[in-house]
């Protein structure tokens, strides 16, 4: 019980050390998370069925107005938060697990395994990810699962590199060496010594990966290549910008503005949080 409490207290202590900007960002993300969780309760209107006159400006029954089909925008934004967070978090989780594992293997085994894995990472880093995602979406159909898989495929290299360099450093430490001479096996070392040391760094990196994935999903949806059944923020913007005459009417003042605002707030907040965390994990970065 005490262990669980300690685990819960640690993040709170970390957040207390944030700068004002970091704290604000954290509150923004928390709010988006709450909106996503309670989307069915706080949106009065359905997010997929028309519930009023089309293109009505904000105010009255529809706090953020409606789109061209008369669907409530506030409801769409609430449910869109779910898509963004889901894609972001699952991608980061997959990439952290896969990348972490590869990093440990690469760093611990060394030799040829390490060489080959490092070369693959070098290649993955320079490849442009958006064209690959577009091709995959075109060939295998745009589903959220495909998007998450492709994003994870392009994201694991970052945690892998971090973990590898950390394991390389740890391997030379005296206590690891002595553990080895006492007969500690690979699994014991990974489990007892590497994972606890490496976990905070990967957790920090996950915030950045989440941000990247959110942007990538929004970009794909904005192109019209996202999952058409999920009402993500990018998809709302896609519909808005493809509406004939959007430039010559005032509709963009709510139809495009609010999803834009939600997305920008989320991306910037995630970036600030990860910046603060990186600064704590590595004091050299913050100057």
């Amino acid at each position: 019980m005490a262990g669980v409490l300690k685990l819960l207290l640690k993040p709170i202590k970390t957040i207390k050390k944030f700068s004002l900007l970091g704290k604000t960002s954290f509150i923004v993300i928390l709010l988006i998370l709450l909106v996503a969780i309670f989307a069915p309760c706080i949106s009065i209107h359905p997010y997929n069925v028309s519930s009023g006159p089309p293109l009505s400006p904000p105010g009255g029954e529809h706090p953020l107005g409606t789109d061209e089909l008369g669907i409530d925008l506030w409801a769409q934004i609430c449910y869109g938060a779910r898509v963004s967070l889901l894609v972001g978090f699952l991608t980061a989780l997959l990439a952290a697990l896969g990348g972490g594992l590869i990093g440990i293997v690469s760093g611990y085994l060394g030799g040829w395994t390490d060489k080959i894995l490092m070369r693959i990472i070098d290649i993955m880093i320079v490849l442009p990810d958006l064209p690959v995602m577009i091709v995959m979406a075109a060939f295998f159909g745009p589903s959220l699962l495909n998007i998450i898989l492709v994003l994870a495929l392009f994201s694991w290299v970052f945690p892998a590199r971090i973990v590898r360099s950390q394991v390389l450093m740890l391997k030379e430490q005296g206590y690891i060496k002595s553990a080895e001479t006492y007969g500690a096996g690979a699994w014991y070392l990974i489990h007892r010594h590497f994972l606890p040391e490496v976990f905070p760094l990967v957790a920090v990196n996950m915030v950045r990966l989440t941000g990247r994935a959110v942007v990538a999903e929004a970009g794909l949806s904005f192109l019209g290549l996202g999952d058409p059944t999920s009402k993500s923020w990018g998809l709302i913007m896609h519909h808005a910008i493809n509406f004939a005459g959007i430039y010559f009417t005032p509709f963009w003042k709510w139809w495009l503005l609010y999803p834009w605002l939600a997305l920008t707030l989320m991306v910037i907040s995630l970036a600030f949080i990860s910046r603060e965390l990186e600064k704590m994990a590595d004091p050299r970065m913050g100057r």
């Binding site: 941000g211 942007v215 970009g219 430039y247 963009w252 834009w260 991306v267 910037i268 970036a271 910046r275």
Partner: peptide, 21 residues
């Protein structure tokens, strides 16, 4: 730092609607 974190296409939308439209 703020500018570096906003994706280019979101910036592009702002520019399009303020300066062009």
């Amino acid at each position: 730092i703020i500018m570096s974190e906003i994706p280019a296409f979101l910036l592009g939308l702002v520019l399009l609607f303020s300066f062009a439209a």
